[in-house]
Design a protein around this nucleic acid. Structure first.
Lengths: 192, 192
DNA sequence: GTCTATAGAATGATAGAC
DNA sequence: GTCTATCATTCTATAGAC
């Protein structure tokens, strides 16, 4: 139990201050134990970080799976739009997502390759779910546009919105960006 | 002279390891002096970081201004596309841009608000240059699309491409993302 | 599993000689 | 303006009592 409490405290500290900026004592303090006691659960800071990262990735994948399995009777476009707004809310409210965005973008230098590989699990999951959704619905696309193009564009916009989220949270600017990109995106792939 | 050499060494170290991860000794070592000598030029790590940030922002603004003043006889669309590819190259080759992306996204917690304000100088510059370019050329847009929508979408895509750049640099994936988003973007705002 | 005690290294920073 | 010497603090990490 203390192990997972430590992981969740680690998620917060690493999300707020990054790997080097977060100290074991702050993580321990949040759980209510001394920093030395961490070593009964994780053999080093690096291992704690690794565990937090794995934990975070799998929670994020679960979120994606739940979202896309909850079919509803929305159209594809509605679903894609809803995913964006839900994911922005999730960033705002969920430490897990904040941790992941920061530490997947900027892992500690000596763990970079490893973390990028793990991040690809998430990206590929999302890509394949989107591709499946899109292929099952869209049969004819405009101007040689392939389903893969739609996925790539969608993910690029999603990433861009996360960046705006970093700056101002769920601000007026973000809402404007969501609104505008969405208009152009939908217009861009509207099929006949 | 040593002052600016220190700033440029700082740009590299802060770009690679972030604020907390970069040490004054590594910065000094790169310039060939001892860490204590830094204090003859900057009164603290925070001040060095601040100076590096200001330096970085103004260099980046200069890049944008040069790009858009070099008119050429390209169309707007060509120009916008070229700006993306040039900016990706710049990210790959210029420490300045790497520093800025990392530390504007994730500044040290106690300097966050200050750095965000400074970042807005850059964003607003870019927004206003784009808006000016677009308004001067595009007179009729599809479906109630406003010039501002074009700017917002374009910037969102640009940010999204930077994120992909963080992961794999100028990879096959990035080129695919550029290609796909560009197709959808251009199709989305094509005016009649 | 948590604590105290301790170690060793590195950090940002200051003072003063040259 | 750079150096050496020094400081206080913090950091990750280990050993051993309870």
């Amino acid at each position: 139990m203390t192990g997972t409490k430590l992981i969740e405290a680690a998620l917060l500290q690493f999300a707020l201050h990054g790997y080097e900026g977060a100290s074991l004592s702050s993580i321990a303090g949040e759980v209510g134990i001394k920093k030395e006691s961490i070593y009964s659960h994780f053999k080093s800071k690096e291992h704690l970080f690794r565990s937090a990262f794995d934990y975070s990735i799998s929670k994020e994948i679960a979120f994606i799976e739940v979202f896309f399995s909850g079919t509803g009777n929305s159209t594809l476009i509605e679903k894609l739009k809803q995913f964006i707004t839900e994911y922005m809310d999730r960033y705002e409210n969920t430490i897990n997502t904040r941790f992941l965005i920061r530490n997947a973008y900027f892992p500690p230098a000596h763990l970079k390759e490893e973390m990028i590989l793990k991040s690809y699990d998430l990206t590929e999951k999302l890509e394949s779910m989107l591709l499946h959704e899109i292929e099952s619905v869209i049969h004819r696309l405009r101007n040689n546009l392939q389903p893969e193009d739609v996925v790539m564009t969608y993910l690029t916009i999603l990433d861009g919105l996360f960046v705006e989220m970093l700056y101002g949270g769920k601000s007026e600017r973000l809402l404007k960006r969501i609104d505008s990109s969405w208009k152009v995106f939908v217009e861009g792939l509207s099929y006949k």
